[in-house]
């Protein structure tokens, strides 16, 4: 009897505790690796730090300094440029590819799908190294073999061309990845809608505008928000492609400037400030995007 009672109590207890134990690893890891650093970096942004131990409380001094820092604004402009390029170039291309691959007239869809998706499997570092050769002024594929522009362009040596080079590389790497989201969205649209439109005499453009796009709205919202966040966090590609943002910070991005301040200049408080400003920028833009795309609206 005693054994039975003990066993019952054990089971009773563990039934209450077990769920918490199962979710505990996530929360422990979250608190240790996310929660604590977040709070710590917020505190850090209010301090000027120097060396390995010294710190002085400066309140919002770092934020004031940051808003008067021309390299920060240049990095912000470059980042916004990349984000704009992503939204206006990469995502339409991804959507176009998805529509093509969803069409019944295209053959070898599986091969094409894999081919378009494959670049995302290549690590960013290698992409940067490969495109360093592709953009080479004299011997590079773009200037030399394709002769697209009819003249030698210093893609990585002239200020005006650095960000376009980064954007084009981003298109190559990520368009296929976003295409998969759009493709999944397209395949989820009910066929009857198209049949009904056809019966009503709608042409391709009208069908696209009034059926495809509205049906894809949740997918478009997701891809837009995720791409925007990824664009604002851009770091490795331009860092390697432009050898640290050169020339003249033409390839510098917000995260690159954060890295430089934190790890190269040992200005950890200032770097934390950049991190929090970036956080607010991402949060505001994401909320605005989601609102504009009607994600918060009740159907």
């Amino acid at each position: 009897m005693r054994t039975n009672r003990t066993t019952y109590r054990f089971w009773n207890q563990q039934q209450k505790i077990a769920p918490y134990l199962f979710i505990a690893p996530f929360y422990i890891l979250f608190v240790v690796f996310m929660g604590y650093p977040l709070v710590s970096s917020l505190v850090m942004s209010l301090y000027e730090m120097r060396g390995f131990q010294s710190r002085i409380f400066v309140g919002i001094g770092n934020f004031i300094d940051l808003f008067g820092d021309p390299i920060f604004w240049k990095s912000l402009r470059n980042t916004a440029y990349f984000a704009a390029g992503t939204l206006t170039l990469q995502l339409p291309i991804a959507l176009l590819l998805a529509i093509l691959l969803n069409s019944k007239f295209v053959r070898g869809k599986n091969v094409l799908r894999l081919a378009f998706f494959a670049p995302v499997l290549v690590a960013g570092v290698f992409v940067a190294i490969i495109f360093n050769l592709v953009y080479d002024q004299r011997a590079g594929l773009v200037n030399n073999e394709l002769l697209i522009f009819g003249k030698e362009i210093g893609w990585l040596n002239e200020e005006n061309y650095v960000m376009p080079a980064v954007i084009l590389t981003g298109v190559w790497q990520w368009a296929g990845f976003n295409m998969i989201y759009f493709l999944a969205g397209l395949q989820g649209i009910r066929q009857e809608l198209y049949e009904a439109a056809s019966v009503d005499g709608a042409n391709w453009w009208q069908t696209f505008l009034h059926i495809t796009l509205p049906s894809l709205r949740p997918v478009i919202a997701f891809v837009f928000v995720v791409s925007m966040i990824g664009s604002l966090q851009l770091f490795d590609l331009p860092y390697i492609l432009t050898n640290g943002g050169e020339p003249a910070d033409a390839g510098s991005t917000i995260v690159m400037y954060l890295y430089k301040n934190g790890f190269q200049f040992m200005r950890l408080g200032y770097a934390a400030t950049i991190g929090w400003v970036l956080f607010f920028i991402i949060a505001v833009i994401s909320i605005v995007q989601l609102r504009l795309l009607g994600i918060f609206r009740d159907e």
């Binding site: 360093n132 050769l133 080479d136 004299r138 011997a139 990585l156 040596n157 050898n243």
Partner: peptide, 21 residues
Amino acid sequence: TPVYGTWHGDPSNFAAMQDGK
């Protein structure tokens, strides 16, 4: 001439050397 590529150790720079540039 400015360095070919992003620094003196860039493969493009080595290619330019081999081409006698």
